[in-house]
Design a protein around this nucleic acid. Structure first.
Lengths: 204, 204
DNA sequence: ACCGTTCTGGGACGCTTGACCCACTTGCGA
DNA sequence: TCGCAAGTGGGTCAAGCGTCCCAGAACGGT
């Protein structure tokens, strides 16, 4: 076992914990399961981190922090018109979900867990700020590219987008019905683009 | 301690378990916590039910079965026009969520738990069938009352409704932002009613 | 080459968990 | 009224949990 600085080990443990959670759920993320995943001894755990809850906090931070650009960086705005672009982004997101359903489920479980844990209670709100911020940026970019405006505030529309993707993800995790999910994403794209208004000939 | 038939005790235990889960989360629903909630001795637990997982199965069945008419029976279709009626139903649903957020979170947690448990893996799909069926019935009733049709299949529109309510609930549980939730429900009602088409003068 | 800090491993602790056993009480049917 | 199945309570078990301790190994500055 190579020597690793405590701070690095802490990060490695957080990643290992996330892997365990994705594979077996939050309740299975015991100290022993985590160190086994990371290939460490049990003592290294408490050398790097004071308590298990502290590590879970790291995991939540890891999730919130990395879910932004990391996973969604591939979501490119492309397509011939606004509707196609929006549908494309939703489809790309959904491909990510389908590629690793366990991980996506782990996100939901972590959110629920954080809501139950007083020390972590503020994280879910931050998580949704990240989601909504990302959605808002995408909407803004789309509006610029296709020279449209939105007939409601972008943050509100972003919230709608987040709710739609969350709802679609949850439904697919439960049913694994690909066709239904695709139809749902079609409707979601319609709902979002319905709020676009063409700008006057001379874009600002 | 009065004598209670094993079958009755089993049902009582399931209700107690649901109460514990709502209050403290799935991971806190230990056999001891459940019997304490139900006011029984630990031995009565395993007399009424073979194993803890068996009881959890009962809880899931209880949730799926009762969530239909029971909780949503109050969702009445009322309002002067379609849009108002749909918004009213969404608002009523949301009032239920806000009245007992812990219980609603318990529903999500149970779904996640069931997805992780092979013996319970088929329940989430059934749960969503119930949701979608309820939404479809509401949409059908609304169409009849306000003499409109839907420009897409009702099951698809029902899936959209379920995704929107799920997404809105999840977002509110995380942020507890009432105003944002109300705005989101406004948009949700718009998205749904956008698919209504007026019927010809002579309704069948 | 040395020494003290930094890191590692194995073992151990106290506690909670799900499960269960067995002696007991209760109440219904004959 | 009586017997026996149905139900109850307390105590107990092994396993798994988070946490901790301590002897020793590896490293970096001198």
């Amino acid at each position: 076992m190579p020597r690793i600085a405590a701070t690095d080990r802490r990060a490695a443990l957080a990643r290992a914990a996330l892997a365990v959670i994705a594979r077996e759920g939050v309740h299975a993320a015991t100290t022993r399961a985590i160190v086994a995943e990371a290939g460490m001894s049990l003592a290294s755990f408490h050398y790097a981190v004071a308590t298990r809850d502290d590590l879970l906090r790291d995991v939540v931070e890891l999730v919130v922090g990395s879910q932004d650009a990391a996973a969604f960086g591939t979501l490119a705005l492309q397509g011939d018109d606004l509707r196609a672009a929006v549908r494309g982004v939703l489809g790309s997101y959904f491909d990510i979900v389908r590629a690793d359903p366990a991980r996506e489920q782990a996100m939901f479980e972590l959110t629920q867990y954080a809501l139950r844990t007083p020390a972590l209670a503020e994280f879910p709100a931050a998580q949704y700020d990240v989601y909504r911020g990302l959605a808002a940026r995408l909407l803004h970019t789309a509006a610029v590219r296709f020279r449209v405006g939105w007939d409601i505030p972008v943050p509100d529309l972003a919230a709608l987008g987040v709710a739609l993707t969350d709802g679609a993800t949850l439904a697919w995790l439960a049913t694994r019905d690909d066709a239904a999910a695709e139809r749902l994403l079609d409707l979601a794209a319609d709902s979002l683009t319905a709020h676009a208004i063409p700008l006057s000939k001379e874009p600002k």
